[in-house]
Nucleic acid binder design. Sequence first.
DNA 1: TTGACGCGTAAGGAAATGCTTACGTATGGT
DNA 2: ACCATACGTAAGCATTTCCTTACGCGTCAA
Lengths: 117, 117
Amino acid sequence: MPATASPRLPDVFGAISHPARRQMLDLLRDSERSVSTLTRSFRMSRPAVSQHLRVLLDAGLVHEQRHGRERRYRLVPAGLTPVRDWMAHYERYWDQHLGRLQALLARAETPKTKTSP
Amino acid sequence: MPATASPRLPDVFGAISHPARRQMLDLLRDSERSVSTLTRSFRMSRPAVSQHLRVLLDAGLVHEQRHGRERRYRLVPAGLTPVRDWMAHYERYWDQHLGRLQALLARAETPKTKTSP
DNA sequence: TTGACGCGTAAGGAAATGCTTACGTATGGT
DNA sequence: ACCATACGTAAGCATTTCCTTACGCGTCAA
């Protein structure tokens, strides 16, 4: 066994730190796209786009699927949950209403646990 | 006037891409802290912590205030809004319920506009 | 089979990042 | 005045990031 190809741990925060990669995710929000298609939206070479996509892939933010000779990349929204989870700790600072609502939601959506301590 | 010290644009996504800086923000969520106090939570030198705080400061995520000979850093939650705004575009993918609820909220919290088209 | 297309990856280099130690400057206590 | 404390910053260095060009491999069309 030659060891798995990518031993990198999925650094989601690092992946979304680059503007181009965020824009790629934004584009993939509409529909899946091939590398060449994506490249048209950027001022960089196609290999550069490929490398960015690799970072997004390793982070679990996109998924690739072969279609003939092209590879279509598709958004994997669940990959963003680490960011969402981290941000959740700060939400109460932005809007008191939203904070209260979330607490309400948490109780309403998990009626099994009775107002956990 | 010798020009403002930091001409860097506030790269919030870059600022939160480093685990140590996220942890610093997490610590500052409890209360404001001095540099030395923060340093005790990390395995790096005090200057290194200072440099990380500088990045957070430039990004508008923290605010510093002199107290005698120490500088206390305080969280500025509003600095995270770029992240929140960007993430908002993806929220509908995670949970249909949450998405519907948000739409509901939007209508409920702006009763002036009657179910905008 | 031949050739164009779509793509990943290697190689190389410029620039940014993240740490260290050394030093300089205020502030506070004695 | 003296010295310790708290901190920022400069300098130096290793590593990482991000781009380029060059190349190689599979796929489609004729």
